[in-house]
Write a protein that binds this DNA or RNA. Structure first.
Length: 576
RNA sequence: GCGCCCGUAGCUCAGCUGGAUAGAGCAGCGGACUUCUAAUCCGCAGGUCGAAGGUUCGAAUCCUUCCGGGCGUGCCA
């Protein structure tokens, strides 16, 4: 097993510093600027501990370690540059080690077992029944799905949960609306969800003008909660219709769940939750409703959480609390991750605080908050449907494929266009940190140039093309020749190798920070480094020894790109 | 009012637990396809990192205040 470059460097430096290797590993960094070395050790943090100026530490290290360096195959030379110790690697040894590690890991380079034995529950997507899937839902869906895959890659046992919005007063509105205006035949028509949504909007609007509609809605929801057969049947029907529609979109996005446990799933678990609150004495009556007043229990700065309305009906918060308790009791997870919009931050803080008061390890709960998509509202009917966006992207992708040299066989154009269109939309979301609000922008979502999903897919297709051409002309395939990666010593090759080596760290950081964008950014850097290499150097026409070495490099990049795209939920294409 | 989030190039964003001269993409300008896919690459231009203080050997990064924008704030989800 080859250790990482960082560990090798730490092993070399640690004795001279009198520090444990693990600590030194954390101090070693990548210099911002090339030409200053491959790695660097800033000596500032050591200055106080060693009671010497950082410049002196750097200089002394460079000198005292000279004999060790001379014997070290990987580190070629140390150079003190002011307060920094710059570490220059032997390019050939470095290249051999990196490619050996990738080859050894096979298709799974970047994965590890560091999460083995730990469970993670990820609550994501969670659309509302009877409402169409709009681009606002895309965020939770793709971020959550990526976090599921990233954690699995690190060995965690992940339970991806779709916490469907299939319960609550909104169904009171729907049931009441159906009873007043429902036209059964329209549920068989083209767009049944759209129709249900219209009914909801109409009833909601009516309720704003005339309180009697609001009363009807509340009463209808009460009936639903009490198990009224007609209300139940109607609810069940709406739920099925919606799920069928959502499934279509999930298939297109390649998203799967381990558990579809919507809010209704916790219907019979709310009593347990409320009983637990009572038992612990954290809930009390207030103005006829049941609340948790956090201030009374030593939690400052949080508004009270409402658990039961004065009319006895339960609330979203009640179901979320029941869900949280259920998850802790059922799974004993190391993390529970909620991928939910930033506007719900307060609600989740209340939820986490309540779980903490109940004695659960609330610090394991994390809210991955994303900004909302500006200028959209289901109620106002200004929402842009995910279907429209994906449809448009796929259409444009097909146009683009058919332009110029068509490299995709006719019978694969459709699925390629789908992969490119979806890749563009998915990556547009995953390439940024999610917290910022985003203004909806057609242009940006369906772009194929620059830092986009299709750019990564295109790079992958080019890598594949190189492998194919070399196989055709020379009969050589990666892993099947006597190749010496030690020949990969140009700046461009070294840059690619550096990015390859960093890939496992990117996955770890993405999991630690709950940021799929770390993986996205890394893939963009790798693809850019490779593209630069690609334009400057040749693989197929290089001298045989070099060609075989480069073939291994190409395959390594291809694997990492394919693997990373897989984590993000984007298909790696053979041709485009 | 109070709380939370955001503010980096014309636009969209990176910048890891503070570390060397703040980086990409898009848009603009100029180049590179008889050679492995030009959905690419190379170059130029573009920034008082919202403002002011503070901590530090060192601040886009940490603290305080202010400004601007967004969201939330007891019977919606």
């Amino acid at each position: 097993m080859h250790e990482s470059t960082r560990d090798s460097i730490a092993r070399l430096l640690a004795p001279a510093l009198g520090l444990p290797e693990s600590e030194v590993t954390e101090l070693v960094e990548l210099p911002r600027e090339r030409g200053r070395g491959d790695y660097a050790l800033p000596c500032f943090p050591l200055a106080r501990r060693l009671r010497k100026p950082p410049q002196a530490i750097a200089a002394e290290l460079a000198e005292s370690l000279a004999p060790a360096v001379a014997a070290d195959p990987l580190v070629a030379r140390l150079e003190a540059s002011g307060p920094y110790l710059n570490i220059h690697l032997d390019p050939a040894t470095f290249a051999r080690r990196v490619l050996a590690r990738v080859a050894q890991a096979g298709e799974r380079f970047g994965e590890s077992e560091r999460g083995a034995g730990q469970r993670v529950v990820i609550d994501f997507s969670s659309p509302n029944i009877a409402k169409r899937f709009h681009i606002g839902h895309l965020r939770s869906t793709v971020i959550g799905a990526a976090l599921v895959r990233i954690h699995r890659a690190l060995g965690y046992e992940v339970i991806g949960v779709n916490h469907l919005g299939d319960w609550g007063t909104q169904f009171g509105h729907l049931i009441s609306a159906w009873e007043l205006w429902g036209e059964p035949e329209r549920l068989e028509g083209e767009d049944p969800i759209g129709y249900l949504q219209q009914l909801y909007v109409r009833h909601n609007k009516a309720a704003k003008e005339d309180p009697s509609y609001a009363d009807r809605a509340r009463a209808a929801f009460r009936r639903l909660e009490e198990g009224d057969p007609e209300a139940r049947a109607l609810w069940s029907r709406m739920r099925e219709i919606s799920l069928a529609e959502f499934d279509r979109i999930y298939r297109l996005l390649g998203v799967e769940f381990d558990e579809i446990a919507g809010e209704s799933f916790y219907e019979d678990k709310m009593a347990h939750a409320l009983a637990l609150c009572e038992q612990r004495g954290i809930a009390r009556e207030s103005e006829g409703a049941l609340i948790i007043d956090f201030a009374e229990h030593g939690v400052e700065g949080l508004q009270p959480m409402l658990l039961r309305r004065s009319d006895g009906a339960t609330l979203y918060a009640t179901r979320d609390l029941a869900a949280g308790i259920y998850r802790f009791e059922t799974y004993d997870p190391a993390k529970i991750i909620y991928v939910i919009g930033a506007p719900q931050r307060l609600h989740l803080q209340q939820l986490f605080a309540a779980l903490g008061l109940l004695g659960f390890p609330a610090e394991r709960c994390h809210h991955v908050a994303f900004g909302h998509v500006l200028g959209m509202s289901t109620r106002e009917g200004t929402a842009i449907l995910l279907d429209e966006v994906l449809g448009r992207a796929i259409e444009l992708a097909e146009q683009r494929i058919r332009e110029g040299d068509v490299r995709v066989p006719e019978d694969r154009i459709e699925e390629t266009a789908r992969a490119v269109g979806v890749g563009a939309v998915v990556f547009a979301d995953l390439r940024h940190r999610p917290i910022k609000d985003i203004a909806f922008d057609w242009d940006r979502l369906v772009r194929f140039e620059g830092e986009t999903g299709p750019y990564l897919q295109y790079t992958h297709a080019r890598l594949r093309a190189i492998l194919d051409r070399v196989a055709e002309e020379h009969g050589e395939r990666p892993g099947e020749t006597e190749a010496d990666p030690g020949r990969l010593v140009t700046d461009e090759e070294r840059a690619v190798l550096m990015h390859l080596e960093q890939y496992p760290r990117a996955i770890e950081r993405a999991a630690r920070e709950l940021e799929p964008s770390v993986v996205s950014a890394h893939l963009l850097d790798l693809a850019a480094a490779f593209s630069t290499f690609y334009h400057k150097h040749h693989v197929k026409n290089a001298p045989p020894e070099l060609r075989r070495a480069r073939l291994e490099l190409v395959e390594a990049v291809r694997r990492v790109l394919a693997h990373g795209l897989g984590l993000l939920g984007i298909e790696a294409l053979e041709r485009m």
